[in-house]
Design a protein around this nucleic acid. Structure first.
Lengths: 117, 117
DNA sequence: TGGTATAGTATACAAAAAGATACTACGGAG
DNA sequence: CTCCGTAGTATCTTTTTGTATACTATACCA
């Protein structure tokens, strides 16, 4: 097994998760199921409309989330995780778990960068 | 279990892995063991000295890698993954595996963005 | 005396990502 | 006739990341 391809693959997964808002969006959809744009926006505090649209488009392109448009006025668009997107869950969970112990680790070293507002 | 803290933790892990060179550096050290600065630089093609120093400093601050300086001339500095840093391996591996199947998934959809030079 | 090797710094610049803000379309309610 | 709500676009500015290039210290070697 050589090195190059391996590295390349990690970057692949990373590029999907990276973006200031993608993990939050994915976790929100994993927990919340199918959500409309506005609902998603409410559940991801601080995100701007532009950023949300933007990140959703990128995730959609990778077939991680599905977008369903209802031809209504006012518009209704629903987003959900695809089956394929669900395969990311273990990574997200692993990262969450790691992050949690990392926080403890940092606290033990006197570094108080906790998840605070 | 609420949402906020969970999200925060994922970001925590992510922030350590993110950076154009960090996964590559980590995998190189995981595979290569203890390496000198120059050796590391050779094994991560394309990285500039500044970026390497930079990323190593950040990883060191998070206690993911250890830096050992030998008071010699010319200088000798060795880098290695800490025990703590090794706990990231499962995440890296999960990402690699996911990335591999993601590539297949994309190929099946006619998208040929493969790991090529 | 000058060149080599190592592990950096310093500075300037370019590119990418994120943020702020304003604008649009459209049908229905009043 | 005007305002509301939804799901966006369009621009512009700021911040963050990354790149390129040059420079440093110092012992050793010829």
């Amino acid at each position: 097994m050589e090195m190059q391809p391996e590295l390349c693959r990690v970057e692949d997964a990373l590029s999907i998760l990276v973006g200031k808002w993608k993990p939050i969006i994915l976790l929100t959809l994993l927990k919340g199921g199918t959500l409309r744009f506005s609902e998603l926006k409410r559940r991801v505090p601080g995100i701007t409309q532009k950023m949300l649209t933007n990140q959703l488009r990128e995730l959609e392109e990778e077939d991680i989330i599905a977008r369903k448009v209802y031809p209504q006025v006012p518009p209704k668009v629903e987003y959900s995780i695809t089956e394929y997107g669900k395969s990311l869950e273990p990574i997200l969970v692993a990262m969450h778990e790691w992050g949690t112990s990392h926080t403890l680790h940092k606290m033990q070293k006197g570094n108080r960068t906790i998840c605070e507002k």
